[in-house]
């Protein structure tokens, strides 16, 4: 599965290639996912054992400030996460044994940049409906899977 969120928590893109279990409807699922990432980020920022100045738990932070995270793993899936300086969040949910996907996330961000941001008809903050982006993404994800 893959999600793309913008900095306001709007789900710009949701794709799924294989998802046997679906407990919630799509909108609830996106909200829950964004909430999880947001809270995990404030948790890691607070927990960061290498810096002394962390502020209070849940205090709003500038993008790129504070300790973030890049993945977590459960017994059934692994979630890789990347946040760009503009606040775009790219999330990949994969099999728990997949390795480090940070490079793939960067590559996907590049695709997003090339085919979505550079598209003059695209309105920032609206769901992505670029045919070219979708097909290239599909090809790439099937390549790494």
């Amino acid at each position: 599965m893959m999600y793309v969120f913008d900095r306001n928590g709007v789900c710009l893109l949701y794709r799924e290639w294989n998802r046997p279990l679906r407990t919630l409807n799509a909108q609830q699922d996106h909200k829950l996912m964004f909430g999880l990432l947001f809270s995990l980020k404030s948790l890691t920022a607070k927990m960061d054992p290498t810096s002394a100045e962390k502020g209070n738990l849940g205090v709003p932070q500038l993008l790129g400030h504070g300790c973030s995270f890049h993945s977590f793993r459960t017994n059934t899936y692994k979630l890789s996460f990347m946040e760009t300086p503009s606040g775009i969040k790219i999330i990949l949910v994969t099999h728990p044994r997949t390795g480090d996907l940070r490079e793939s996330l960067k590559y996907i961000y590049n695709l997003y940049f090339e085919y979505v941001v550079k598209n003059p008809l695209y309105n920032p903050g609206s769901p992505i409906r670029s045919e070219l982006f979708n097909t290239t993404l599909d090809q790439y994800v099937r390549g790494i899977a």
Partner: peptide, 21 residues
């Protein structure tokens, strides 16, 4: 994290990899 699992029988996060820990 258990609710968001794409597969059944998820038992929650085992490992969280942050930037510094």
């Amino acid at each position: 994290s258990q609710q968001l699992s794409p597969v059944e029988h998820c038992s929650g996060i085992e490992l969280l990899q942050a930037d510094t820990f």
